[in-house]
Every structure is written in structure tokens, then in C-alpha cells.
């Protein structure tokens, strides 16, 4: 196991862990949503890097080209990106409602208000 061609997975994992850390360590809800986005992008990078073939080109058919990248992960991630935005929009709408109801978007302050009530 010398330094093999695994670094693409490691990059995805580092990004994923950064997003994970933001989600669990920060109290601010907007920041949590951004962290979740980073987490999602790391999964996208993981898939797209798996689709890459050495010496291949983008999967657009052209005479004289033999090797293409794998188109299937590209399709899946196209769908996933759009779904990610849909979930982000929903999460942000919830944040706005929470702000209206509690007057804050800090997780710990919301918990404090819940305990008082």
C-alpha cells in the first residue's frame, strides 16, 4: 500500500468530515445548513471522481474517440444536485419559521426557551 491512487476518496472524506463537523459543532441553524451543503458536495465529488476513466473524455459521442468517462454517475449527481437545492430551500424555510416563532436561530437559545416554558 504505497501512496496509491486513492486520494480522490480521501479528498471527498476530508470535505465530508468538515461538513459533518460544522453540522454537529455549531449552534447557528444557517451555518448548519451550509455544513450540510458541504457534506452533500463531498458525496458528489466522490461519485464524479469514481466516474473518471484514465485517458477518457467527457461522455459526448464524437467520431474517433474511444474512451469516455462513465455517464451514469453524472446523471445520478445531476439529479442529486437539484434535490439538494430542494432540501436546502425547505430547510431555510424552516429556519425562517423558527426565527419567527422563537426570535433566534441559535440552537442552544431555542433549547433554553423550551426549558423555561
Amino acid at each position: 500500500m504505497e501512496f496509491p491512487g486513492l486520494y480522490n476518496y480521501w479528498i471527498a472524506i476530508v470535505l465530508m468530515m468538515v461538513g459533518f463537523y460544522i453540522v454537529i459543532a455549531h449552534d447557528n441553524l444557517i451555518k448548519k445548513v451550509v455544513g450540510l451543503n458541504i457534506f452533500q458536495v463531498s458525496v458528489f465529488v466522490f461519485y464524479i471522481s469514481m466516474a473518471k476513466v484514465r485517458g477518457g473524455t467527457a461522455p459526448i459521442l464524437e467520431a474517433g474517440i474511444e474512451t469516455y468517462s462513465n455517464p451514469l454517475p453524472h446523471v445520478l449527481i445531476l439529479t442529486a444536485i437539484v434535490v439538494a437545492v430542494a432540501t436546502t430551500a425547505l430547510a431555510l424555510a424552516l429556519v425562517v419559521r423558527i426565527r419567527n416563532a422563537y426570535g433566534t436561530i441559535e440552537d442552544d437559545e431555542i433549547e433554553g426557551q423550551e426549558d423555561d416554558a
Binding site: I30, V33, A51, V85
Partner: peptide, 22 residues
């Protein structure tokens, strides 16, 4: 990484719409 379609979508949707929503 040769995923041009995904790059388009990410630039338009990820960088554009998500930022507007945030």
C-alpha cells in the same frame, strides 16, 4: 473530472440558486 453537465448544474444551481436562497 470530465463531468461537464454536472459542472453546469452545480454552477447554476449550487452556486447561484443556493446562494440566493441563503
Amino acid at each position: 473530472l470530465d463531468a461537464v453537465d454536472v459542472a453546469f448544474t452545480e454552477a447554476a444551481v449550487g452556486a447561484g440558486i443556493t446562494t440566493v436562497l441563503l
